[in-house]
Simulated assay, not measured.
Amino acid sequence: MTDASLLVDQRSASLTASEQDVKAWASGRRVFVSSLITDMPQERSAVRAAIETIGATPVMFEDLGPLDVSADQAYLAGVRSSEVYIGMWGPRYGVRMSDGYSATHAEYREAERNGLRLCLFVHGEASGEMDGAQRDLIQGARNLYTTSSWSDPADLQQRVIRRLKDLAAEELAPWVRVGRVLFRAREITSDGRTISITADVRSDAVHAELVRLRDGRASGVAFASPTEALSVQLAELSTRTISTIAHEERLTLVAQERRSSHMRTALNGISADEVARRALSDGLFGTSTLGEQARWLARPTDPLAPLRGSGFDDSVLRPIARLLFTEQLITDGSAARIDSFALGPAHQGARRLQATWTPPQIYVNEPDPARLSIDGTVTGL
């Protein structure tokens, strides 16, 4: 799938979005605010102001009118209708609901399950008075994500604004792969046959490789974006040199004839989707869930192999890891879409990886396939 000698435009990770672009990204976007309401009234007001400052819509329990559903169901419905989750965790865990979790813990779990972007803030650990359940919640989250502290409501407000702007910049400039080069695109348009990309490339090596692909008129070049993976030819490339370290690139890619679907076979009562899931788990986590009987049918699959030992910063590693993961599953016919992908921070050389995807529909009239997921530890990233 991927040439091991990737050329990555690492400087493009520092791209920021303009205020106008941030406003456009935020318009209509819902941001769920989770905390103990009685413990953090000032913090909640500050976070509301931060969300409204960038033009998004805060989703807060205080704003809910009378509903004919239980309070805990109203909380979770608010999470599911949002794109971003902001959790503010203090010393208290909160009252447990019927499912055994506090409202904030249940909201966090629902946000994870539905693939929301997470912004986690922790306060009060130094007091030594943190509930045991709250400490467990925070430590569990830190095994997968990075948290931030805050000193006062004003500081929290500014941290939330910065985090939301960072999310906007990530989504407004998605990573793409053309052959063995990876860079962030400013804009992608596709009609299924022709793909146009505009990007600000800050790596001379990446620029030179794009020129080589154009001049060589190579066909069968692998292309991947956050939602698409196919074989293309780089038909056109025009460059405007902005400075000695920056090139504005305009690419036109022409999709090649799509290959026939990969053969996907069930084995001894194990569905084809499950065989593919186990192959992915074994390749990524070093497990042996396929078993000896299945090894002739499916081999362990590791879409992140080109990134092992790369030493990339997390701002580069995480989006590229998701891109390569998406490309692998779409290319081999295992997934119609990736629903969530979370690669945690490194702890002693290991990272927790959680991902969920929806398999392709085989027949038009059949129900939507059940989502599949993996959860394990990867090393070397």
Results as ranks from 00 to 15, higher is better:
Ala56Cys: 13
Arg202Gly: 01
Val364Trp: 05
Glu248Val: 04
Ala218Thr: 10
Ala56Leu: 10
Asp204Val: 08
Leu172Ala: 11
Ala235Met: 03
Gly216Tyr: 04
Gln328His: 03
Pro319Val: 09
Thr252Pro: 09
Ile374Pro: 01
Ser225Asn: 06
Thr287Val: 01
Ser271Ile: 06
Asp21Val: 15
Glu187Trp: 06
Val275Asp: 00
Ala71Tyr: 02
Ala305Ser: 07
Val364Leu: 14
Asp72Lys: 05
Gln354Phe: 03
Thr358Gly: 08
Val31Cys: 11
Arg29Glu: 03
Ser190Tyr: 01
Glu43Lys: 12
Gly269Asp: 13
Ser14Asn: 06
Ser334Gly: 07
Val201Phe: 00
Gly269Gln: 06
His207Ser: 13
Asp63Asn: 12
Pro359Glu: 04
Val84Leu: 07
Arg212Trp: 03
Tyr145Gly: 01
Ser288Gln: 04
Arg322Val: 02
Glu170Tyr: 00
Trp357Glu: 14
Ser81Ile: 00
Ala133Lys: 10
Glu125Pro: 06
Ala342Pro: 02
His347Gln: 15
Ala141Gln: 06
Gln139Pro: 01
Thr241Ala: 07
Asp332Ile: 08
Gly333Thr: 02
Arg135Met: 13
Ala355Phe: 10
Gln158Leu: 13
Thr265Gln: 05
Arg308Thr: 10
Asp368Ala: 14
Ile138Glu: 01
Thr252Ser: 14
His247Met: 12
Arg259Cys: 04
Asp302Cys: 12
Gln20Ser: 15
Val8Phe: 07
Arg135Tyr: 12
Ser238Met: 06
Phe312Gln: 05
Arg214Pro: 03
Leu120Cys: 06
Leu6Tyr: 02
Arg202Gln: 03
Val59Glu: 00
Met263Phe: 10
Asp155His: 12
Ser340Asn: 12
Ile242Phe: 09
Asp204Ser: 11
Gln139Lys: 08
Phe32Thr: 02
Gln328Ser: 15
Met1Arg: 08
Arg202Ala: 05
Lys23Ala: 15
Asp9Glu: 15
Thr198Ala: 05
Asp166His: 01
Arg214Leu: 10
Ala205Tyr: 01
Thr331Tyr: 08
Thr146Glu: 14
Asp215Trp: 06
Tyr108Lys: 02
Asn268Asp: 13
Gly311Ile: 08
Ala229Lys: 13
Ile54Glu: 12
Ile320Ala: 08
Ser18Cys: 11
Gly283Gln: 13
Ser45Phe: 03
Asp368Ile: 05
Leu329Tyr: 00
Ala305Leu: 12
Ala71Cys: 07
Ala246Glu: 09
Glu274Cys: 09
Ser81Arg: 14
Arg278Gln: 11
Trp296Ala: 00
Asp282Pro: 02
Ile86Leu: 08
Arg295Trp: 07
Asp332Thr: 12
Arg186Thr: 06
Ser340Trp: 06
Ser219Gln: 13
Tyr108Trp: 15
Arg44Pro: 14
Ile161Tyr: 01
Ser102Phe: 07
Leu172Val: 04
Asp21Cys: 09
Ala205Lys: 10
Ala222Tyr: 03
Val211Ala: 01
Leu267Asp: 04
Ala321Trp: 00
Ala342Leu: 12
Tyr101Phe: 09
Ser334Arg: 11
Ser27Asn: 14
Leu156Thr: 04
Val178Met: 02
Ala154Tyr: 00
Asp68Arg: 09
Lys23Arg: 15
Glu249Lys: 03
Leu76Trp: 06
Ala199Asn: 05
Gln73Lys: 12
Thr104Gln: 04
Gly140Met: 06
Ile374Lys: 05
Pro306Phe: 04
Glu236Val: 08
Ile54Met: 11
Thr16Gly: 03
Pro58Asn: 07
Ala246Asp: 02
Ala71Thr: 10
Asp339Asn: 14
Ala126Arg: 08
Arg217Ser: 07
Val254Glu: 15
Gly192Arg: 08
Lys23Asn: 14
